[in-house]
């Protein structure tokens, strides 16, 4: 908001938008932490938060960051594929072994190559990446091996990376809008779905499914992105903002782990559904990585290989 620059004696007001609700870790431990750190630093920066998709849906807000109407946003990597395909590889099935692998990759030079190319192509800066918790399968049967997916209609989100993941895992993907998912599972319109634990809990899917299989097949990465407004900040402001984002990455990772542990414990105690923790992750990962290595091409393949090369396995 150009007006604000003058009215507030040089303070730059930044809008930070996202789609998460106040009780989700991305807001509580992510957006809030960034805003608190920056606002208390007193470097002429003020962040205003707009959560719960108040400023539009995911795809819409990516376009708004590109046009400079939203300054900072938190987006899934696969959604960012709409402006730069290779970044969606962060959401490829079993690209990362776990959250530590993601951190190791983000600390590596390879990630710098990716974010630089992303900024070059789109004018959007990626300030940080965290995992909102790995995605797991839910269904009315346990899913321990790729064969268990046979004949099950599993709902995957409609974007290309997710559909590629479905194929990589050997699942039959079917489309249902997120808003209609609960009813579709309850009525058996689809037989299973996959989401991180925070979404599974907020949608109360334990009411309508019998098994949660901890496949952890995708890290569900969130990227904190910023418009070209980044270039208007002075060095001090950039440092404060960058540090705030890094603080948030640590906080979210801790919060997600704590929340997941609490939620799983609640489910186990209440016996809402059966939690399958002996999924044959190696079999799934082997199958997925083989498929993805064959399927990715060009820049996307390079990103995928760079990610795999930072694996400690």
């Amino acid at each position: 908001s150009g007006e604000g620059d003058v009215a507030n004696g040089g303070t730059i007001e930044l809008t930070l938008a996202h789609s998460y609700n106040p009780d989700q870790p991305q807001d509580r431990c992510g957006a809030q932490v960034i805003a608190d750190d920056v606002n208390s630093a007193d470097v002429g920066l003020k962040i205003e938060l707009f959560g719960s998709s108040q400023l539009g849906g995911d795809a819409d807000r990516v376009a708004s960051v590109a046009s400079g109407d939203i300054d900072i946003d938190i987006q899934g990597a696969s959604a960012l594929g709409a402006v730069y395909e290779p970044i969606s590889v962060l959401d490829a099935a079993y690209a990362f072994d776990d959250a530590d692998h993601l951190a190791a990759f983000m600390a590596s030079d390879a990630s710098k190559t990716l974010t630089d190319a992303f900024a070059e192509e789109t004018g959007i800066h990626a300030l940080g990446v965290w995992s909102a918790g790995a995605r797991h399968f839910t269904a009315n049967t346990p899913i321990r091996t790729p064969d268990d997916l046979d004949g099950l209609r599993i709902r995957f989100p409609g974007s290309p990376q997710f559909l590629m993941n479905a194929k990589a895992l050997g699942a039959q993907a079917t489309e249902v809008a997120y808003e209609e998912l609960y009813l579709a599972l309850q009525q058996g319109t689809v037989e299973g779905q996959e989401n991180p634990i925070t979404n599974i809990k907020s949608q109360n899917l334990s009411e309508v499914q019998d098994y949660l299989s901890l496949s952890a097949h995708q890290l569900n990465t969130n990227v904190v992105i910023m418009s070209s407004k980044w270039d208007e900040l002075n060095d001090e402001q950039q440092t404060v903002l960058q540090d705030a984002v890094e603080h948030a990455v640590t906080e979210v990772t801790t919060c997600v782990a704590d929340d997941e542990e609490t939620t799983l414990e609640e489910w186990r105690t209440a016996g809402d559904w059966e939690i399958v923790d002996d999924v044959d992750v190696d079999a799934f990962q082997k199958k997925a990585v083989a498929y993805l290595s064959d399927t990715f091409t060009g820049d996307s393949l390079e990103v995928f290989e760079a990610i795999r090369s930072t694996s400690s396995k």
Binding site: S1, G2, G56, A59, D60, S64, S67, D69, A177, E180
Partner: peptide, 21 residues
């Protein structure tokens, strides 16, 4: 007047129309 980019208003309008439900 609020300095939003040209196109932002119409984008918001078309996005509201393009909703699956």
């Amino acid at each position: 007047l609020e300095g939003q980019s040209t196109g932002m208003a119409l984008r918001s309008v078309t996005n509201a129309m393009g909703s699956f439900p």
